[in-house]
Amino acid sequence: MKKISVIALALVMSIGTFFTSCESLKNTNNTQRGAGIGAVAGAVIGGVLGNNLGKGGNTAVGAVLGGAVGGVVGGVIGNKMDKQARQIDQALPGAEVERVGEGIKLVLNENAVRFDTNKSTLTAAAKANLDKLIPVFQEYADTNITIFGYTDSTGSADYNLKLSGERASSVKSYLVAKGLSSSRFKVTGLGIADPIASNETVEGRSKNRRVEFAITANEKMIQDAQKEEGK
Rank of each mutant, 00 (worst) to 15 (best):
N29Y: 02
G75D: 08
N30M: 13
R33S: 14
K80N: 09
G101T: 04
K26Y: 09
A63D: 13
G75I: 06
M81Y: 09
T117C: 06
G57T: 03
V113S: 02
G36D: 10
G56P: 05
R86E: 04
V76K: 10
I37L: 07
I77C: 01
G70K: 13
K83Q: 07
N29L: 03
G103H: 02
G70P: 12
E23C: 10
G78N: 03
V113D: 00
N52D: 07
G70Y: 13
R114P: 01
G57W: 05
G36T: 10
E96Q: 11
D89A: 15
G46P: 05
V40G: 04
V48K: 07
L92D: 06
R114A: 15
K55A: 09
E98H: 03
G75C: 05
L106M: 04
K26M: 12
Q90L: 11
I104G: 00
G34A: 05
A60C: 00
V64D: 00
L49M: 15
A63M: 09
N111P: 01
D116Y: 15
R99W: 02
V64S: 00
G94E: 11
R99H: 06
I104Q: 00
R114M: 14
A95H: 08
A35T: 13
K26V: 11
G103P: 04
G75R: 09
A39W: 12
V72S: 10
G42L: 10
A63W: 04
Q84C: 10
V107E: 12
I45S: 14
